[in-house]
Every structure is written in structure tokens, then in C-alpha cells.
Design a protein around this nucleic acid. Structure first.
Lengths: 194, 194
DNA sequence: CACTAATAGATAGCGATACTCTCTATAGAA
DNA sequence: TTCTATAGAGAGTATCGCTATCTATTAGTG
């Protein structure tokens, strides 16, 4: 309840239709928006200002689906790890090899380069090509997700669909990977010490 | 610098070999550990107390590889979203269908069920089977990662390998998926408004 | 119509987290 | 000797995401 007021103040929820100085009507659009905010916060772990960016984009009818997806990606990408210019070049090389065309200011390029740099800083001699199987694994998934965004659906619906898909299926994918790891790990290293 | 002192205080780094009341020697083991902590923090986004759990597990020679992986999973899983018992049952059904055997207290079961519940709270009529392609996509990746953990390597090396792999490749996978999304999105919805 | 409980809107406060700064005593360098 | 640097410990700080309080008004109940 106090949280809802806070969200209203922060511009995550649109103000209700004011019927009196101390009364406002909230439709089911509002409660849906609240659910969206909660999902982005709890499942996606997005920060309040990132969520604000996302809902602004969702509300803006002038934005293309592609642009809104970019906003969502920017909001999700933590962008924590530093990377040298060489790693970034290697990532671009990988993307070129895959034939993936992405915006030059996509934060995920840095994210991926940061992962590469991190592995190397810990003494691992990894090539960018180590990521190839990962790229091939997610490519059809991403393709399917984008394909499911039919252009003939109402703008707001499609845009929310894109954002939610990115965030929620991302969380699901990460969880599934860890579950698969645990399954395989249990089979291999199950009861044995070391 | 001040951060290193803080990490020492928090038990993320082992104290240096004290040579005098105001002097201590730090070996390359220490700087490697520091790099590990920074990677877990920046790339993995782990919290300080979660990192402490992880390094404790890494240091403990009594832990099996499988156990340490469990600690890492517990540290990573945000565990934010709530899920009803029905979603959890559906997730278990999915895991049974896949033949994946995981610990009953694996937090990722709840994570996945939370994703499912979130989609439904936003009005989507999704079945657990929606996640099947995702499971099939990550299964070989997770298998490869676990397989790369040779049991004949020194304990500390293997254990760190497991933790770093889970965290860093997880970040890389998420970034790659978003890059793939952007690529596909650009092809389909590129310049068109809506 | 009176009275109670609730609500909008605004402001201030709180608890957790991850640092960052200061202080003191001592040690190595010039 | 003097100047700078460091270990160790404690207090202080910035940010984030709420949460509690306060005031004016108003809907609902008897």
C-alpha cells in the first residue's frame, strides 16, 4: 500500500483518475501495470529507475518494437565488469562470424567482453570461440521469442510482451541452466568427495 | 585499497602473513583471490555475504564438487519472486519429464516456478512445457560445463573452476541471448514503427 | 447529520548494503 | 631523524527501496 504510493510518486504507475482531492479511481489497467512493475522488480531484479525507463518506453506509442526491446536490454544489463578494448574487438569478431547485427552501443557487447576478460584475469586461456556453443544454443530461442511478437497486435500489448519475455524468460533460462548443472553434477560427482 | 581492507575485514580475503604489527606479506594467492571476489561481485552481481559463503566453500577441502556447486547456486539465485504450490508442482513435473534429478531444496525450482507464476499474473496462459525448448537448449551446455570439471585436478582449482564457470558463463549466456534477440528484432521490426 | 475510518498527496525517516574515510601506532625509506 | 606509508579498527557516507507520519478531505455508517 505504501509501496504503491511510492511507485506513483516515482512515476512507475500512472496517477488514477482523480474524482476528488482525496479520491481517485484505479482501473484494472493500473493493477496490471502494478503487476508488471512487481515482476520487473522481483523476477528481473531491475532497479526503480530502470523500471521507469521501461514503462516510459511501453507507454510511448512512437517507439518501434525494436527500440523498446533496446530500452529493456539497457535496463537489464548490469554492466558491471570492465573489459579491455581487445576483448571488445574479439566479441565483435564473434558477432560478425555469427552474422549477428547489433547496435554499436549495445551494452551486452561489453557485458560479454567483460565475461571474457574476467575469465582471463583468473588465469584461464579462453578464446572467444568458447562462447560459440552458447551462441548457437540461444539463437533459436531468441529467434522464437522475437517471432512470437506479431506486428498485428496492439502496440502496448506487443511492447509489454517483448519486455516481459526478455526479463522473465531470461530468469527462467538461467534457472534451468543451473538445474541442469545440478543434475549433471549429481550424476558425475554425486556422492564422491572431490 | 580501502576496499581490500574491507574485504579482509569481511573475511572474503585471507589475512596476509604478518611480518610486523604494521606490515603483512600478500602472495599471488591473495591477488588471485581478490580477482575472484571482484569477478563474483561485478560479473555475477553476488552480494558480499554470498561471496563469503562461496569462498568458505572454496577453502573447505572437505566439500565435494557437487556440494560446492550447490553453494554457488544458492549464492547466485536471487530468489525474489513468489510462486504458488501449483507452479512448483508443475516445475517438478517438468523436471521429472526431463529426467533431471535435483535436490528438493534447490532454490532454482522456486525461481522457475516464480517465472511461471509471473507470466500468469500478467494474464498469459502459459504451460510449463513452454520451458521445454529452453531446457533442451541449456542441457548440453550444462553437461559440457560439468564434464570439464575433471576430478583429477587439485581440489581448490576444480572448485573455483566450478564456481567461476557457473557465474561467468551464466552472465555470458544471458548477454548472448539478448544480443541474439536484438539481431532478430532488427531484422524483423528494424526500421518500421511498430 | 454526526462521527468514524479511510484516502490522496507530500515529507521525513529507516534499514540494508557496499564501500570510504579517519585515526592511531608503528615501520621502512631518504 | 624525518617523512611517508601501512595495518588494523571504527565511524561515517551514499544509494536504494521502501515505510511511517502528517494534514486535509471525504466516503460510509448509524
Amino acid at each position: 500500500m505504501a509501496t504503491i504510493k511510492y511507485y506513483l510518486r516515482e512515476g512507475l504507475l500512472p496517477p488514477g483518475q482523480a474524482t476528488a482531492p482525496n479520491q481517485a479511481d484505479y482501473s484494472d489497467v493500473h493493477v496490471h501495470r502494478l503487476r508488471l512493475v512487481r515482476v520487473l522488480r522481483e523476477v528481473g531484479g531491475l532497479r526503480i529507475d530502470a523500471i521507469r525507463e521501461v514503462v516510459r518506453a511501453v507507454e510511448d506509442p512512437e517507439r518501434s518494437l525494436h527500440e523498446v526491446l533496446g530500452v529493456a536490454h539497457r535496463a537489464i544489463s548490469p554492466g558491471g565488469a570492465a573489459c579491455g578494448p581487445s576483448e571488445l574487438a574479439e566479441v565483435d569478431e564473434l558477432l560478425a562470424h555469427l552474422g549477428w547485427e547489433v547496435s554499436p552501443d549495445a551494452p551486452d557487447r561489453h557485458e560479454l567482453a567483460g565475461a571474457l576478460a574476467s575469465l582471463r584475469s583468473l588465469g584461464r586461456d579462453v578464446d572467444v570461440r568458447t562462447f560459440l556453443p552458447y551462441a548457437h544454443a540461444v539463437e533459436p530461442l531468441a529467434g522464437g521469442e522475437v517471432q512470437s511478437l506479431r506486428a498485428d497486435t496492439p502496440a502496448e500489448v506487443a511492447v509489454e510482451h517483448a519486455v516481459v519475455g526478455t526479463v522473465v524468460y531470461g530468469a527462467a533460462l538461467a534457472a534451468l541452466r543451473r538445474l541442469a548443472q545440478e543434475h549433471h553434477s549429481g550424476r558425475r560427482h554425486g556422492r564422491s568427495r572431490r
